[in-house]
Design a protein around this nucleic acid. Structure first.
Lengths: 231, 231
DNA sequence: GTGGAATTGTGATATAGATCACATATCAAT
DNA sequence: ATTGATATGTGATCTATATCACAATTCCAC
């Protein structure tokens, strides 16, 4: 992820579509800044929520807990990502809990502001549609993967997803995950037991697919990882 | 699902938002009718696809096959549903294969027509956003369910989803699934082995949660089913 | 630095659910 | 009606993964 701020990229990653400058200005003007301390919760699943947030700096995680108390991480999201848009769009309650992993600067856009903005500037709607489409595509894939892929593969997927959310590309194609992530987090993303995530990760470390750099993981062979995550 | 045609409801179901009449007229004018025979394939996953389709009559299934050849059913969809919108919105290839389960009448809207329509009439974009949001919410839930719910629960979810897509509410709260569906289909939706889907279904029949009516399933206790499907 | 807490590694079970192997039932076409 | 094909039911395995039970590390607060 670059340093530019006029992005509107999704957790789906890929080439992030740029927002036209005029739209971006209008966006900035309508939004209000919000600060988050590390570990602070932005909102809980089930909350009534008004509006969405754009991450300008920092990292958050989106998670839900199932009836049996298991936490399931849906994603770890970084700069440039839009969050909280579901409740904005369909008037239901928040579908996940969002927690800051480190101090964050966000922009908050209320529901009414969003729709005013969009009505005046259809480009905004188009971008939002594209963003949602990407996410839906990813999530659909997840569903299939969950049922047809082994633990190794699902852990590989978790890393791929982390790379989208907070990967910093390095020389030689390496991708550094510039944020401490625990095995429990990864297990939560992959939907596997922590112990088994541990075993899978260690295999990846042994095979040189992953490496550990100052407590953070680095993806040494993104191509190999993608193969392992294949549906 | 009712018989009105000016709907724009999603597989997510619930109260389908009505499309304002003017928008609906414009939609009709821009769209071209398509007919599908039973078992005919509308498009394959991976195809380049232009535009989306609205189901006016009939039923289709959306599926993908994983590398190991397992077919995974994403949904069974009926009248009033919009399909194929992902490729429309994010310029990637078709994410699933769509097959007619019975003869269908569809409306096809090309990409350019869709965006022309939306730019002229932001209501269209708003509806599309809401539709995608609902689907994304459902799919997110699926992901969590897949990891934290037992076979019984997942089969229950499959039936709940079928009810959304093609359920006909009857007197006394019963919901009739007005379409023959095989156990393999259900297993494909739940992501479980057919044999185990069979066992789960029989328990439901024994407990009176489900019933069989002329080869079709009927949900006798929707509330109980929902409980079983709870995350 | 030191100590306590949080994370991680790893073997030994336990088990849900897949897979296999058929018998049985149902359907659709001649 | 007869017949092949397709769908279903049900036991008997088998296996991947969860679970349990710790030891070994690493982290961070004082």
């Amino acid at each position: 992820m670059g340093n530019e701020n006029n992005k509107f990229s999704g957790m789906a990653g890929g080439k992030p579509p740029l927002m036209p400058l005029c739209a971006w200005r209008a966006f900035l003007k309508a939004a209000v800044p919000v600060e988050l301390r590390a570990r602070e919760i932005l909102f809980h699943a089930g909350d009534e929520g008004d509006g969405c947030y754009l991450i300008r700096a920092g990292t958050v995680k989106a998670s839900v807990v199932s009836v049996d108390g298991q936490e399931r991480l849906l994603a770890v999201l970084g700069e440039g990502t839009l969050i909280g848009e579901l409740a904005l769009l369909d008037d239901e309650s928040r579908s996940a809990t969002v927690t800051a992993l480190r101090p964050c600067r966000l922009l908050h856009l209320t529901k009414s502001a969003f729709f005013r903005l969009g009505d005046a500037n259809p480009t905004i709607y188009r971008l939002a549609l594209r963003l949602l489409a990407r996410r839906l595509r990813d999530t659909n894939e997840s569903v299939v993967a969950q049922g047809s892929v082994t633990v190794q593969g699902r852990v590989a997927r978790a890393f791929a997803s982390l790379a989208e959310g907070l990967g910093a590309p390095q020389a030689g194609g390496r991708i550094l995950l510039a944020q401490r992530v625990t095995q429990s987090d990864i297990a939560g993303m992959a939907g596997v037991a922590r112990e088994n995530a541990s075993r899978a990760i260690n295999e990846f470390l042994r095979d040189g697919v992953l490496a550990r750099v100052k407590g953070c993981y680095a993806i040494e062979k993104p191509e190999r990882l993608r193969q392992l995550a294949e549906i």
